[in-house]
């Protein structure tokens, strides 16, 4: 049931995704602030399919040369492509403190035992500025294979970006910067090079009192 209703291709499903800041309060307490978060969902057949977005509407927001979004989509499989619109929660006081930890955690599951590679490209005006590549091995748990990228440190570029964004006095200014800031995550089977999931992330600042929000879309070519 999760196919078409959550971030799931034929062979890999995203269970959880978060980018966060941990601030130690005292030796026993750590304050965790979630900038963005996709929680566990358990869709059923009665849930509606995700809305679709024509991938051509966003090609220019991501790398367009060799290995870019267009080429990746042409290679397929088409049901592995998603767009996530995040409303990031920036309602937090940031100070420079070396005891702070900026991290990203994500979890995936599969019926297959494999080794996955996750490439995360941060893009400005559609051009890649930094890339992180991570390799993850499966753990067999409760009848399926689980992949955990646990507390991966956020890179210096991203930490500086968040700090600069926070210094802007108005939300509309932050959104204007975020309009040209995107992230492309591609999860691949390391050995077969098959695309398992391709997730295009775009951002606005949350105005909600309930923290980070998101919408997930299927990407397709009409």
């Amino acid at each position: 049931p999760w196919q078409g209703r959550s971030i799931a291709g034929c062979k890999l499903r995203m269970l959880e995704f978060s980018a966060f800041l941990e601030q130690p309060q005292d030796p026993e307490t750590v304050n965790k602030h979630l900038f963005v978060h996709i929680g566990q969902s358990n869709p059923t057949y009665s849930d509606p399919y995700l809305e679709a977005v024509d991938i051509r509407q966003i090609y220019d927001k991501f790398p367009e040369k060799k290995g870019g979004l267009k080429e990746l989509f042409e290679k397929g499989p088409p049901n592995a492509f998603f767009l996530v619109k995040f409303w990031a929660d920036l309602s937090i006081n940031l100070q420079d403190d070396s005891s702070f930890f900026y991290g990203v955690s994500s979890q995936y599951e599969s019926a297959e035992n494999m080794i996955i590679t996750s490439s995360t490209k941060v893009c400005s005006f559609g051009k890649q500025v930094v890339e992180k590549v991570e390799t993850e091995y499966a753990r067999f748990e409760s009848g399926r294979y689980v992949f955990r990228i646990h507390r991966s440190p956020l890179c210096e570029y991203m930490i500086n970006f968040i700090h600069k964004l926070k210094h802007l006095p108005e939300k509309y200014m932050m959104n204007s910067v975020l309009e040209n800031f995107t992230i492309l995550q591609v999860v691949t089977n390391r050995d077969t090079l098959e695309t398992l999931l391709c997730i295009a992330y775009v951002f606005e600042v949350s105005t909600s009192e309930h923290g980070a929000q998101h919408h997930i879309y299927r990407l397709l070519k009409d």
């Binding site: 005006f125 309930h210 919408h215």
Partner: peptide, 23 residues
């Protein structure tokens, strides 16, 4: 926006793209 960049608002995107969920 620099020349050639089409604003997101000018693109064909679902209405929900501009509506922050209130959950």
């Amino acid at each position: 926006n620099p020349a050639g960049h089409v604003p997101m608002r000018a693109r064909q995107l679902p209405a929900s793209f501009w509506q922050e969920p209130r959950t």
